[in-house]
Computed example of a mutant assay.
Amino acid sequence: MQERAVNVLRLVFGLLAAVALGIQGYHVSTQGASMSNFFSYFTILSNMAGVVVLLTGGVLGLLGRPGVPDGVRGAVVLYMTITGLVYAVLLSGYHLPLEIIWVNTVVHKIMPLVYLVDWLAAPPRRRIAYRTALTWLAFPFLYLAYSLIRGPIVHWYAYPFLDPARSGGYGRIAGACTLMTVAFVLVAAALVRAGNALRRRQERAAPAARAEVSQP
């Protein structure tokens, strides 16, 4: 029953995020703004990946089939957790002209918490190795390279801390990227540790629960 409830909630929140992204994207397109810029936000890309993971996991779970691989889930949880943290620490006062307030709340506040709670409520089925978590860093590094290469070409940067025209130039960007890398590594390690610990706790509790049910 608990597993079914988790899968239903995955579908509900997955659809919420999908609707929020769709409405924001439609709003941007109807205002004549750049859709390539819209799809160049780490927040948008992370939420899109999260929608796929939640909806796929929810549907497969309700059908009684194996869900999304835990390595993929962990990566998305990492990206969304960082999205929420960076927004709270650096970007909460940074608003875009075409921003829809409730969509901003969904993608920056609600969904990061949803993915984190989902990871803790349904921990990985098998132990996650720390070397697996290192592969989760590939996407952020590719995104950084993409942003720094594309930025000078289109004269636009998704986030102020990636814009070399601002005070500090590339030196400030290097410092910000170093701090972000440390944050990614620490959060990834924390997710692996918490997920593995919760999995071990469930495995220890399972025999006791089965024995209790089998008693007359």
Rank of each mutant, 00 (worst) to 15 (best):
M1C: 03
M1I: 02
Q2W: 12
E3V: 06
E3L: 06
E3W: 08
R4M: 00
A5W: 09
R10E: 03
L11Q: 09
G14H: 01
A17R: 05
A17M: 04
A20P: 00
L21N: 04
G25V: 06
V28D: 09
G32M: 08
S34L: 05
M35Q: 15
S36G: 05
S36L: 12
N37K: 10
F39T: 03
F39S: 07
S40F: 02
F42C: 04
I44E: 00
L45F: 04
S46F: 01
N47Y: 03
M48Q: 07
A49S: 13
V51G: 04
V51N: 09
V52C: 10
V52D: 06
V52W: 08
L54S: 04
T56R: 02
T56G: 13
T56W: 14
G57M: 04
G58W: 05
L60A: 15
G61L: 09
G61E: 08
L62S: 03
L63F: 11
L63W: 09
V68Q: 14
G71K: 09
G71E: 08
G74A: 08
G74L: 01
A75M: 13
L78D: 08
L78W: 02
M80F: 02
T81H: 06
T83A: 07
V86R: 00
A88V: 04
V89E: 09
V89K: 12
L90H: 00
G93L: 10
G93F: 11
H95V: 15
L96E: 15
I101T: 15
W102Q: 08
V103H: 13
T105S: 12
V106N: 01
V107D: 00
H108S: 03
H108M: 01
K109R: 10
K109V: 15
M111I: 11
L113V: 13
L116R: 13
W119P: 00
R125H: 14
R127D: 10
A129F: 03
T132M: 11
T132H: 08
T132R: 08
A133M: 07
A133Y: 03
W136N: 10
L137H: 10
L137Y: 10
A138T: 11
F139P: 03
F139K: 06
P140N: 05
F141I: 10
F141K: 06
L142C: 14
Y143G: 02
A145G: 12
A145S: 14
S147P: 10
G151M: 12
I153H: 14
I153C: 07
H155P: 01
W156S: 10
Y157Q: 03
Y159N: 02
A165L: 09
R166W: 00
S167R: 14
S167E: 15
S167A: 15
G168F: 08
R172E: 12
A174S: 04
A174E: 01
A176H: 11
L179N: 09
L179H: 05
M180L: 14
T181I: 05
T181V: 06
A190Q: 08
V192M: 03
G195C: 04
G195Q: 02
G195V: 05
N196P: 06
N196F: 12
A197L: 12
L198G: 04
R199A: 12
R199W: 00
R200F: 05
Q202N: 10
Q202W: 08
A205C: 11
A206T: 12
A208I: 07
A209S: 12
A209F: 03
R210G: 05
E212D: 12
S214L: 09
